[in-house]
Amino acid sequence: MKDLHHHGHQELPSDMALRVKALESLLVEKGLVDPAALDAIVDTYEHKVGPRNGARVVAKAWSDPGYKARLLKDGTAAIAELGYTGRQGEHMVVLENTPRVHNLVVCTLCSCYPISVLGLPPVWYKSAPYRSRAVIDPRGVLREFGLELPQGVEVRVWDSTSEIRYLVLPERPPGTDSLSEEQLAELVTRDAMIGAAKVAPPAKGVRP
């Protein structure tokens, strides 16, 4: 108990923290997993894959019509051109948002997500409210994200599978003609690549 007093400002380890620690020790002691490999896995998902990958794909598609055509034809191959490959991005389909069609991606059964381009999914994507409602009330879901779509816009909802993962290619916002690919990538958000938002125009005062 002495440590508790020393570290009174810290939270006590949760029940799950202790259970996972115990399981890890067991698997390490049995030689079933290598703790350094576990560190490398965590480091990869914390630092090496994330929505910046997808943002570069989107920015390139906005800047290079040839690339955009390849991306919509064979998402996996075009994304691999930028070096983004790997687990849970093996079979990529890219969905183009237009003024008439808005695409929204969900995994109703669990949490399938294009990890190679967006990293690990946010909690809301894995939550019961999103999984249940995206397919039955997509416009209501989008309103909660602050996006009110005109009635004339068709909403297409894509339920991911273990194998096929979707990336939304958002509309390029107005006022971005003079931006470089890097500057465009800065504008692209994770939520826009799921279809839960649009990409906002650059804030006033930002000069290319």
Binding site: L109, P129, Y130
Partner: peptide
């Protein structure tokens, strides 16, 4: 869960 009712609002963080 697809299509079920009653899970409440989505709470993005």
């Amino acid at each position: 869960m697809g299509g079920m009712h009653g899970f409440g609002p989505i709470e993005p963080e």
